[in-house]
Simulated scan of single mutants.
Amino acid sequence: MKRSFSFYARRACATLAAGAMVALSGCSSSAPLFLPDGRATTLVQCPAGSDSCSQQASASCGGAFDVVRQSTENSTLNLIYACRAK
């Protein structure tokens, strides 16, 4: 049975698309990180120089939170925080 070029092209595209889906799902399904005391951590990103990361953390925690790590990269503030126990 002779197959056309378009058959192989469609098959290659389908294989690449499936591979991309697997790669992307691995990023989004990673387990959350926990502190030694058992509290879950969360990463938020916002423009450097703004206080929106702190506002997001405060809103998410209902007030108090602890900063685990903070860094600035390419004008983006990366804030990893954990909510304080209530």
Rank of each mutant, 00 (worst) to 15 (best):
M1Q: 10
R3D: 11
S6V: 13
A9Y: 07
A12N: 06
C13D: 04
C13V: 06
C13N: 06
A14I: 12
T15L: 15
T15Y: 08
T15P: 00
L16T: 08
A17W: 14
A17D: 03
G19F: 11
A20D: 04
A20M: 11
A20E: 02
M21K: 01
V22H: 06
A23Y: 14
L24T: 08
S25N: 09
G26C: 11
G26I: 07
C27S: 04
S28C: 01
S30A: 08
P32V: 00
L33A: 05
L33V: 13
F34W: 12
F34C: 02
R39V: 10
R39W: 12
R39L: 06
R39F: 10
A40D: 12
T42A: 05
L43C: 02
V44R: 01
V44T: 13
V44Q: 00
Q45V: 13
C46R: 14
P47F: 07
A48V: 12
G49E: 06
S50M: 03
D51C: 04
D51I: 09
S54W: 03
S54D: 12
S54I: 03
Q55E: 13
Q56A: 10
Q56G: 08
S60A: 10
C61V: 07
C61Y: 06
C61E: 15
V67T: 15
V67Y: 01
V68N: 08
R69T: 11
E73V: 09
E73N: 12
N74Y: 09
N74L: 11
S75K: 12
T76S: 05
T76W: 04
L77D: 04
L77F: 01
N78Y: 13
N78V: 03
N78K: 15
N78T: 06
L79A: 05
Y81E: 01
R84L: 14
K86R: 02
K86P: 15
